[in-house]
Amino acid sequence: ELSWTAEAEKMLGKVPFFVRKKVRKNTDNYAREIGEPVVTADVFRKAKEHLG
């Protein structure tokens, strides 16, 4: 699991709890794919757009 900024964690907190774990995993995987060592708010937004 990658490191997350406080802002990205806050955004994740707005995701319904029953899918939060999956969203975190998918976002981590997306960040790795694009070469990001940390999940930022920008990476979170891009993952959301990319993953739907």
Rank of each mutant, 00 (worst) to 15 (best):
A41N: 04
F18G: 12
R45F: 08
S3L: 14
G52H: 13
R45N: 10
D28Y: 03
P37N: 12
R32D: 03
D28L: 05
T40A: 02
A6Y: 09
T27Y: 08
N29E: 13
M11Q: 06
K46W: 08
E33G: 09
R24M: 05
V39R: 01
V19K: 12
E49R: 13
K46C: 08
V23T: 07
K48I: 15
K21G: 14
E33M: 15
E9D: 05
R32T: 06
V23H: 05
T27S: 04
G52F: 10
N26K: 12
V39P: 00
V39E: 00
E49P: 05
E49K: 14
T5V: 03
V23P: 00
F44M: 05
F18A: 14
F17C: 10
G13T: 10
A8H: 01
K46Y: 05
R24D: 00
V19G: 08
I34F: 09
R20S: 04
K14S: 08
A41W: 04
V19R: 11
P16Q: 04
K21V: 12
G13E: 14
F44H: 02
K48G: 09
N26T: 12
E36L: 07
I34R: 09
Y30L: 04
G13H: 12
V19E: 15
D42E: 13
A47H: 05
E36Q: 08
V15F: 12
A6I: 12
E36H: 07
F18H: 14
A47N: 03
K22M: 13
K22N: 10
K10S: 11
V23N: 02
G35R: 06
R24S: 03
A47R: 03
A8Y: 01
P16C: 08
D28M: 08
E1H: 11
V38C: 08
F17M: 13
V19W: 15
M11R: 03
E9P: 00
Y30F: 12
G52W: 10
F18S: 11
L2Y: 05
K21S: 15
V38A: 06
N29W: 11
L12S: 01
F17Q: 10
R32M: 08
P37C: 10
A41E: 08
T5M: 03
T27Q: 01
S3T: 14
Y30V: 03
K14Y: 08
V43M: 04
L12H: 01
W4H: 01
D28V: 07
R20F: 02
K48Y: 14
V38L: 10
V43G: 02
K22Q: 14
A47I: 05
M11P: 00
R20I: 04
H50P: 04
A41H: 04
E7W: 04
N29D: 13
D42K: 07
A6C: 09
F17G: 11
